[in-house]
């Protein structure tokens, strides 16, 4: 977990004590005559809708310099349950779409992100405290990553699947099928590119996803859900819950109707507990790198791979006799 976590866990009262009457960092400062900004409420994204958390709670999200950005929904175990239910419901339809169709839908996400590129750049820069130039590179890479995975939708089966020359008069082949509902724990540091890099290979094969957003940097991902909601991705295919990870990650990891968990974004210190929680229903699990993600290069070519798609598919092998 990043050092910033401690900051976000401050109570509202203590924040007010520290920074009374502070304007939101995204607000435009200026003369009193200037228009008052209409702020956005950052909500959850479940089943294609934008509910508030059932808890009615929120937590404060700060920019890299400690200025308040917004209140984010403090999702709960129950929100996770709702999200899993939505993901399970969306699974048959999404998995049954043709690969060509899924390919176009992922490409459509890239198209719509491109249209909101400036907004994403501003949000990533604010969330991560990076320069505009750096934020632009990350946003561009995130958009390009959707395009790259869109292209894999109707190709990865040909790379991962096989026809098997068995010793007998049988036709035998192996095909990848989506594993089912996949939990994705977003990397804490890389607010947008990190999640897109993990989410795209999960859904491209027909899985549906329940995402736990970055705790300290959730806002760009919430904006991403607004893109998903308008880009032909059926409701429930991607569900995003924001909140305190110690409250919601264990619920997702232990959920009996989640088939697999991408724990790549989990801190190494939490990895054992997350993995242990997933054992009861034999969850497929991708572990975090042993050294953590601090030095992980999300812009590198290695951060995208058809082998990542392969980590969230099941191989089905089919036999049929050959005969007249």
């Amino acid at each position: 977990m990043s050092p910033r976590t401690a900051t976000t866990r401050r109570t509202r009262a203590s924040v007010l004590d520290d920074r009374p009457m502070q304007p939101l960092a995204t607000s435009r400062n200026g003369a009193a005559s200037e228009r008052v900004e209409v702020r956005k409420t950052y909500k959850l994204y479940i089943g294609g809708a934008f509910p508030r958390t059932e808890s009615g709670r929120s937590y404060e999200v700060f920019d890299a310099r400690g200025r308040l950005l917004a209140n984010a929904s403090r999702g709960t175990r129950k929100d996770i349950r709702e999200a899993v239910r939505a993901a399970r419901k969306a699974l048959p339809g999404w998995a049954a779409k043709t690969a060509y169709n899924r390919s176009q839908i992922l490409y459509r996400i890239a198209e719509l992100m491109e249209g909101r590129r400036e907004q994403f750049v501003a949000e990533v820069a604010a969330a991560q405290g990076v320069s505009r130039r750096r934020a632009t590179r990350e946003v561009d890479a995130a958009i390009d990553r959707w395009v790259w995975y869109a292209g894999w939708a109707d190709k990865f089966s040909q790379v991962i699947g096989s026809v098997n020359p068995v010793n007998g008069p049988y036709f035998n082949f192996s095909v990848p099928e989506p594993t089912g509902v996949v939990g994705v724990i977003a990397p804490e540091e890389s607010s947008l590119l990190g999640l897109v890099s993990r989410l795209a290979p999960v859904i491209v094969s027909g899985n549906t996803a329940v995402v736990v957003a970055s705790e300290t940097r959730p806002l760009p991902v919430v904006t991403l859900t607004e893109v998903l909601a308008t880009s032909d991705v059926p409701g429930g295919v991607v569900n995003v819950v924001t909140g305190l990870r110690r409250e919601i990650v264990p619920a997702l990891a232990a959920h009996m109707d989640v088939n697999a968990l991408d724990a790549f974004g989990v801190a190494p210190s939490e990895a054992a507990a997350v993995e242990d929680a997933g054992v009861e229903n034999v969850k497929r699990l991708v572990r975090p790198p042993s050294g953590g993600l601090q030095r992980y290069d999300w812009l590198a070519d290695a951060a995208q791979s058809p082998y990542l798609i392969g980590q969230f598919v099941e191989t089905k092998t089919v036999w049929h006799p050959i005969g007249a």
């Binding site: 068995v166 034999v282 092998t317 089919v318 006799p321």
Partner: peptide, 22 residues
């Protein structure tokens, strides 16, 4: 993970074997 159509319990070293779910 393995579906036999009009046959059953066939195994081969070239044929991937393993399960879904639990």
């Amino acid at each position: 993970g393995v579906v036999w159509a009009n046959t059953f319990n066939r195994f081969d070293p070239t044929s991937p074997f393993g399960g879904y779910k639990e």
